[in-house]
Design a protein around this nucleic acid. Structure first.
Lengths: 124, 124
DNA sequence: TCTTGTGTCATAGATAACTATAACACTAAT
DNA sequence: ATTAGTGTTATAGTTATCTATGACACAAGA
């Protein structure tokens, strides 16, 4: 088994703390079915090297994911996924359509997300 | 003219720097047409008090928005909007539909946004 | 001119995030 | 038993963000 860094991408200059980005990226990989229950995560040292961040930053992300019950450490072995929920294909398809809509209308992604958050929270 | 804080909401514990949240919120208000070119922004001191943050944090947001050309300071008078672009009604409508879809399918907003970002960037 | 409202600048301190580095503990394979 | 791979813990230092506070500059109106 090897790690290319999987689909995990971070942006050090986005303003969002890196450890939170790592958490979100791993959750995303799981939801998209790229990682499933029982799968082993990249070792902390490896992921840190691949992402160009410090080990402690990856560890912080892993520890928080463990606290949330998403993954589980096994001392001396590695971290494993313990909880996996998948997104429906239709929903994923709709996300793609939505992304296309935004691009076609030249809507800035950050602004769209800000509006989306407001709408999502207000209509509850 | 008064300031209720307008539609500007921030979350101190979201991990995203507050001054960036303020920037995004103001851009959002403009795009939604709630503020238009020439409109005066809340004074730094007032917005700081309304949001429960320090003046310097608001100032940092305003200064960056000015650097981006969105707003313009007039010494002793206030900050004014210099650049306004609007979102199409159809796009806003689609954002609302999208938010509804996510809620109906119990999709976590953060994860949805993470997937959206990936799709948006990859399909370019 | 004086006052009020506002932008601007500066300094200092607190907290969070990130980095650098080392040492130790457990597991599996040889 | 030894080694390699991995998790765990600890310490220290740097940088970014946020706060607290004060002082000064400019504009408009009384």
């Amino acid at each position: 088994m090897w790690w290319s860094a999987m689909g995990i991408r971070i942006d050090k200059h986005s303003g969002v703390p890196v450890y939170i980005q790592i958490m979100n990226q791993i959750k995303k990989e799981i939801v998209l079915g790229r990682m499933k229950e029982g799968d082993k995560l990249p070792p902390t040292r490896d992921l840190a090297r691949m992402l160009g961040v410090n080990i402690n930053t990856v560890l912080k992300a892993y520890e928080r994911l463990q606290f949330e019950g998403v993954i589980q450490a096994q001392h001396g072995i590695g971290y494993f996924i313990t909880q996996a929920s998948f997104i429906k294909k239709e929903v994923l398809s709709e996300i793609k359509n939505f992304a296309r809509l935004l691009r076609e209308n030249n809507v800035d992604l950050l602004i769209a997300i800000t509006i989306l958050e407001e709408v999502y929270k207000n209509d509850k």
